[in-house]
Design a protein around this nucleic acid. Structure first.
Lengths: 128, 128
DNA sequence: TTAACATATTAATGCTTATCTATATATTAA
DNA sequence: TTAATATATAGATAAGCATTAATATGTTAA
């Protein structure tokens, strides 16, 4: 599979901001108007608008106008799962990288195991 | 599971650069000295050193000195799988987001299906 | 039309970052 | 010690980005 470094970097750039992550998680339970997002995130209206523009530019969200409202929704809701997965990775990396990390969380399903299973799945699919 | 927005954003920031992605993929086949990375990526030595510092800061790589060489390796090699997964997401997002995208790639195993399976796995684990 | 509301944009600010050149530090060999 | 090599850092530059305040645009209702 071809690797689109530039596009991947662009997507990660979109995800590399706390406020944008907050907006994405806010959209996890379905489409919302800008004002609803503003209300629920506590961010200013121009700031939310600015970040939504960035998210739209990378196709992370799509829009549809209804009257004077513009509704935003996640193009691919499973992006939430990707972020959750990254959250798990972050936890494990900081444990491994930290010599003084005393108690390892030893999760039920560590990042590497999940990734391994996923690639098993993909390979099974290819062979069938 | 608690979501560490700030740390996730930090990790994504590390991944949000083409050259750093190149370095990470270059490390996919095991640990390498800085000069080897310089040679194989074609980037300047100070630039590689700079990016490695950033990657190390977010625990994406770890180091060990051997003589005058410093070897870098991926803390969690499965991070490659995360990036590959994101590559798949990027492809699908640009298809969905693009009205004029004529031919959908309709991959054997789309992003959402992989994520769905993964969460099934995690839930099975929890119940057992 | 005007008023009220929803959203987007613009301009300005300060902060961060990618890159280069030059130099410093660290290690080994002679 | 000095020379050679490996890596890191410092300074400079330019570009990008997050944020705010103010304003513009778009939509609906009266």
């Amino acid at each position: 599979m071809k690797i689109y470094y530039k596009q991947i970097a662009g997507l990660f750039k979109s995800l590399a901001d706390e406020n944008r992550l907050g907006i994405i998680f806010n959209l996890a339970d379905g489409k919302k108007s800008v004002s609803k997002i503003v209300e629920e995130t506590g961010l200013s209206q121009p700031l939310v608008s600015h970040h939504l523009k960035e998210l739209k530019h990378n196709h992370i969200v799509t829009t549809e106008r209804e009257g004077s409202f513009v509704f935003y929704q996640l193009t691919e809701p499973a992006i939430i799962a990707l972020i959750n997965l990254t959250n798990q990775l972050v936890v494990e990396l900081s444990e491994k990288g930290n010599i003084f990390s005393t108690q390892a969380s030893s999760p039920q399903f560590p990042f590497s195991a999940m990734m391994g299973k996923m690639f098993e799945m993909m390979n099974q699919q290819k062979e069938s």
